[in-house]
């Protein structure tokens, strides 16, 4: 495999580090131009958002909007209510995520089984993925959260948290299993052939050779789905789980003011943006590896 296709991205480390006794000219010029780009970016950002803010603040009805969305007193009152309620979302997210990762993997493996014997299993797994991706998540939450407890079968849990986890798991497993499946299919068949030719069973080849590589490859898209799940935890407020969104509704109703929603939005921003950046970093790392021919 030859060198990378692009010759690599601008490698600052290489340019800045002065080669032993080499001319520092090039690196200094580079530093200066880097500084200039940063300055330009900074100024243009400030100007852009400054203008935007000016437009909003000078809108005809701004004072009204300010009162109902940006009320300092209400902000201060609702933060201690709302931020702890986010703990419920985190709990929902963490518990569901574990079940999703497992169930989705099982589904993906079932769909990848070859041969006519496994047709029924493949069919079931495929139907599952189709059905749960077709129905809006909120409907699943409603149907399970209200429907099953209404049957009043003895022994069946009545906790809304339980149905919240079940619904999120069912819906998200359908998506995540597709991600896994794409990963499994991206592993060249020669890898399985090599494993089988050594006498490994089909299951062993999957377990030790195909899946470890597939899972590594789909970590960025998996994280993407985590971000979606993170936000969708608010949907379960509709069956009465008092989580962050439900709490902000309560506060909003009490104060006749929308500021609590703004608090909630901010909490999600603070949590989600680092996750999104992490995904970017992982994707960039994968890309670099790919270009370097490491795979």
């Amino acid at each position: 495999m030859g060198g990378s296709l692009t010759g690599g991205p601008l490698d600052t480390g290489e340019l800045v580090s002065p080669a032993a006794g080499g001319p520092p000219l090039r690196s200094r010029r580079f530093e200066r131009s880097a500084l200039r780009s940063t300055l330009i970016a900074l100024v243009s950002t400030v100007v852009f958002f400054g203008v935007l803010a000016w437009i909003v603040v000078h809108a005809p009805n701004w004072p009204d909007v300010q009162r109902s969305f940006f009320n300092g007193t209400i902000w201060n009152q609702s933060v201690p209510d709302i931020v702890p309620a986010f703990g419920v979302n985190v709990e929902l997210f963490c518990v569901s995520e574990v079940f999703i990762l497992v169930l989705a993997l099982v589904l993906a493996v079932l769909r990848s089984l070859p041969g006519p014997v496994f047709f029924p299993l493949r069919l079931l797994a495929t139907a599952y993925a189709d059905i749960f991706r077709a129905i809006p998540g909120i409907l699943i939450i409603y149907l399970l959260g209200f429907g099953i407890p209404a049957l009043q079968i003895p022994g069946v849990p009545t906790s809304t948290f339980f149905y919240a986890v079940v619904s999120l798991t069912l819906v998200y497993s359908a998506y995540v299993s597709e991600v896994y499946r794409a990963g499994i299919q991206s592993i060249h068949p020669s890898q399985e052939a090599a494993a089988r030719s050594l006498g490994l069973t089909q299951f062993q080849a999957l377990r030790y050779v195909v899946l470890p590589q597939a899972v590594r490859r789909v970590i960025p898209p998996l994280l993407n789905d985590f971000i979606g799940l993170q936000k969708d935890t608010v949907l379960v407020s509709y069956i009465g789980v008092v989580e962050i969104f439900r709490q902000s509704q309560i506060d909003q109703a009490a104060a006749f003011n929308f500021t609590p929603y703004l608090v909630t939005a901010l909490v999600f921003l603070v949590i989600t943006i680092p996750l999104a950046r992490l995904v970017d970093v992982l994707i960039a790392r994968d890309r670099r590896r790919f270009l370097a021919g490491a795979r």
């Binding site: 052939a193 090599a194 089988r196 030719s197 050594l198 006498g199």
Partner: peptide, 18 residues
């Protein structure tokens, strides 16, 4: 699987597990 234990095969493209 038992047969393949007794037969080694090496491919053109190595196919090592990366």
């Amino acid at each position: 699987n038992r047969v393949r234990r007794r037969l080694g095969i090496v491919f053109q493209s190595f196919n090592l597990f990366p």
